[in-house]
Structures are given as structure tokens and as C-alpha cells.
Amino acid sequence: MQLLELEGLHVAFSTDRGEAKAVNGIDLSLKESETLAVVGESGSGKSVTALAILGLLPKRTAMVRADALRFDGRDLMALSEEQLRAMRGKDIGMVFQDPMTSLNPVLTIGRQLSEIGEVHLGMTRATAQDHAADLLDQVGIPQAKARLRDYPHQFSGGMRQRVGIAMAIACKPKLLIADEPTTALDVTVQAQVLELLAELQAEMRMAIMLVTHDLGVVARIADRVLVMYAGSVVETGSAEAVFSRTGMPYTRALLRSVPRLDQADEGPLRPIRGSPPDVMRLAKGCSFAPRCDLVEARCHLGQPPLARCGPDHQAACVLVEPTA
């Protein structure tokens, strides 16, 4: 059974210059205890998608529309704001990118952790404090009990992200959405945090939606991959299929721009030329066409739809040979 099903999500932001279309009708689904990596460059709409699922986009500027958004058998679009609130942090946990700014600087770690237990699990202040200490212990912070009284600035970046993860898993959610959880961290710390996420997932059998631009991270922990470009899904499938039988030139270009330690003679890194399109003015053709090495005349005619190119593998490119 699918845990999360999202169909036809559109997100647009009203700006001074007009409407910016951040997400243009994407579908996405996630099974229980599965890891889905949402991959793309900055501005591809991946973080916006994550925030839209939780209803965390600013209501004043963001227009969110979807054909369907179901989580754990419930229609999220039919829920009231209060029902959504009760679900956030309880059934769906979220880890943010920058642990330096995503923790409240003037509240103790203990306070920021225990309030979750108080709000969602009906705990008393004392029980919630014990619960908070257990959580810190679980994410590998030594002397958990003593550290509850500390403030975020007394922790290192990696430790802060562990605190952020502790907050996200406080209610043993079915789904953990991690928005670039390792981007702001040192490389050595990145590995530790990913390892922690994998451990917790195995322990609690939760699904993870990992938003990232780091394909190294994806290869390590993702079951399935969804590649986004200019607000659309351009390739999706099992991690194995996407990495070994890449269908979309954009994905291939992304893979080529990642340094690899196991192939010393691969030659220089090849960055993708040009920059992502301006979401204020999307052309009607394939949005990757202006940067694509294999571009043809028909690429400019219209955005190619996602086409099946293998079992559990779809790509949106005119060059893809559709399979039955």
C-alpha cells in the first residue's frame, strides 16, 4: 500500500514580477519504510514540494493546488488547519537543511524537544523531559540528560542536526521528510548523519523522503529516485534503474558532475553548462533543451511527458524508447 500519494501538485508564488511557477503538476508516491530521494538543482522545486506536503508554505504568497494528496489513507486536502497541525510532527516529521538556523536560539534543547511530547503525546512536563532525554540518547548525543539544559549555540553543527532529527522522530512518525539534511554539514559529519537516518529507519520502519542535490547521498540510501527539473519530474524509478539505465540527459549530466573516488581515470568533472531556467518565463518545449547536448528540433515543440522506459522506470525525454 502507498503511504504517501501526491498527484498533479502545482505550486506558484506571487512575486513583484508576477507569478513564479515553482512546481508544475508532479506526481509522487512513497511506500511504507521506503526511501525516496527527490533530486534536483537549486530552484527545481524539490524543497517546495516537501513543504507543500506538510502545508508549510506561506499562505500569503504560495498558491498550492493538487489533484490528490493522500497520506496513510487520509485525504490531506480535506483536513482542516487544526487537523493538519495535529498530524505535523506526529505522523510526519521534518528535518531541515540548516541546523544553525532551524533551532530556536533562545530556548533550551530540552524545551524544544519536550514540547513535542506535551503537545502530541499528552505527556506531563516531567515525562516529556525524560522522553526528550531518551530521544537525544537515541540520536547519539552523549550525556543526554545533562544536555537538555543547553542552548543550540552550545552544540556543534552535526550535533545540532542530530537534535533536529530527534525532534522529527519524537513521535515515531510513519514518514520523515528530510530537506537537504546534510548540505550544511562537513563531509565527515554528513556520513554520520546519513548513517543515523538509516539506523533510525531500520529501527522504526519509517518511510523517508530525502530532498537533496547530492547524488552520492542518493546512491547510498535511496530505494527510489525522483529527478526534478524546473518544477517537473523528468525521471523517476528505482535507484538501480535510474543510476544504471539513465533515461534523461539531465540525470546523466547530473551524474557526470559528481566526483567519484572509485574511478580514478574518469577525467575532469563535467559541470552542466548554462543555468536552470527562470521559472517566471518557462518556454513551452522541454525546459532542459537549452542546456542539453542531445537537443533536437522536436525538443522545442512541447514538454515531453513521462514515458515508461523499463519496469519501475520513467523518463521525460523524446529520446526515450517507450517500453510496454
Binding site: 497541525r85 510532527g89 516529521g93 532551524s102 513535542i116 503537545v119
Partner: peptide
């Protein structure tokens, strides 16, 4: 601020 978004993602009451 980011920490306000975190607080909302935690499902806290608006008043809190």
C-alpha cells in the same frame, strides 16, 4: 526565521 518554520513543522499550537 527558519526556527519558526521548524516550530510549525513540529505541529505546535499557533499560540505556542
Amino acid at each position: 526565521e527558519d526556527y519558526m518554520r521548524t516550530a510549525r513543522a513540529k505541529g505546535l499550537f499557533p499560540r505556542l
